[in-house]
Nucleic acid binder design. Structure first.
Lengths: 255, 255
DNA sequence: CGGGGAGTTGAATGCAGTCAACAAATGTGG
DNA sequence: CCACATTTGTTGACTGCATTCAACTCCCCG
């Protein structure tokens, strides 16, 4: 892990701000809020950001790269709870219990903006809108968790995989389109095993589902790149309503 | 639904306060916070509190009875997201998006303390600790969701059922012990079908698992009453660590 | 006493897991 | 730049857990 504390980039011009916590705030509130930030941290692929059982010291806004949040199981497997993408807010625990219930690991090389948690209490007192912004984000996180839970509990493997791929695709596309990129393929740094660990399936079965989806031309996926040519068709397989999924996955923060 | 606005019971003496939102606050902050409350609502068993798609108007603290939070699926089934017990905080949406992502239905006759959501912004500005308290509760809700997700995604049916029964048993016991009751059996108003809907299993299979658990003397369950004689043994079947589960299920709010 | 919801049982089906082997892609050091 | 090691992806055969469907019982409530 490398840490930078000097000459941090300005939040006002941040390319991902609209997708992040501060996207919830008005521009004229940013000066107050930005004082929260202490540094930017960089982790290499495979490095742990924190471990289950750790006491949360800093909250993070993911600036670049993907992070996996997961729990370890007694049998040696892991349950992936969430894939964090740029803009996501991680490791915020303000109550009495600051013990993390999960671990976090960098999938690719990642950059994070770090905010010491003890600063939040004071800033919230001065800027109640920050508390509202954080609440909104908790809300979205919970709703996404509800949505995964629903898919995982009550749909067959093909729908589960389709749901996860489509969710990640939609989120990634909205990010790269913010950057002025309109390619249909998005970078997709996770493995089939990761997908299995997120959905409670074996990597082998995920692979079989992938091949089905490919056969139906619903996905193109190679070289860590994913394309979903027909989102509407994919949504059908995923057994979700496409507009609702888009609202949940992108319209959520900020806009 | 019946609503009472006059002569509401005092929060200071509330039997479930330690398990609820206001259990997070100091006694001397209660006067400010209590002004949030507008009325107590009563619903009969089977009545809806709100529907998926509704705009949240009031948040609720569940005062008495059980509530099921769920999503409807295209195939006519429903996915239960959470069983709410006395002390639970429901339907709080303070951000821009106030559309509920799930419905809520009363399992038994229930009483709720209602708090118009628009009052929260002002109160938070005056009482930042309220924002912290709400954040703590969101946290716990998310952690419980992570825990269910993990169980549902990666354990066989017997572990899933054991997990759910044990969680509800622990929560109910802690509530009745607060009231000075030390019976080992707790009231258990839900059906095997409800359990199936929460875990993504058919009621038939839940029934088979119940019979196994009974054969092993891990549960006694009849007349809407549940006893778990050996929590430690049950935790083993549920593939969870009993102390951690207790922390998550009861130590969470307040104490 | 009758009706309906909840719980119970058995037999047949099918989705996803397991095990084992191999192929392709990626990364590393010589 | 190539050789080798490791990780990731792919395929097939077999097994088993949970679903489905259908029938039936029990219990509660009116």
């Amino acid at each position: 892990m490398k840490s930078v504390t000097q000459n941090l980039p300005k939040c006002q011009q941040c390319a991902i701000r609209s997708a992040a916590l501060f996207g919830e705030l008005e521009t004229n509130q940013l000066d107050k809020a930005r004082a929260l930030r202490s540094c930017q941290n960089m982790y290499s692929a495979g490095e742990y950001l924190y471990y289950e059982g750790d006491t949360a010291q800093k909250a993070y806004t993911l600036y670049d790269g993907w992070v996996i949040l997961f729990k370890n199981l007694e049998n040696g497997n892991r349950q992936i709870l969430r894939f964090a993408l740029p803009g996501d807010f991680l490791c915020y625990k303000i109550g009495k219990n600051r013990t993390m219930d999960h671990s976090a690991i960098a999938v690719s090389d990642v950059t994070l903006c770090a905010f010491p948690i003890e600063r939040f209490r004071d800033t919230i007192a001065q800027l109640p809108d920050l508390a509202i912004a954080i609440s909104s984000i908790s809300d979205i996180t919970t709703e996404r968790c509800h949505s995964s839970l629903t898919t995982i509990a009550s749909h067959p493997a093909e729908a589960k995989v389709a749901y996860l791929l489509l969710s990640l695709y939609i989120r990634q596309r909205s990010l790269i389109m913010n950057l002025g990129n309109s390619k249909t393929c998005v970078s997709f740094p996770i493995t089939q095993e990761d997908i299995g660990d997120a959905l409670g399936l074996t990597a082998i079965h995920v692979n079989r589902v992938f091949q089905n989806l490919r056969k139906q031309s619903l996905i193109e996926c190679k070289n860590k790149c994913l394309t979903i040519p027909d989102e509407e068709a994919m949504a059908k397989v995923a057994k979700v309503n496409l507009p609702s999924l888009k609202t949940l996955m992108v319209g959520a923060y900020g806009t």
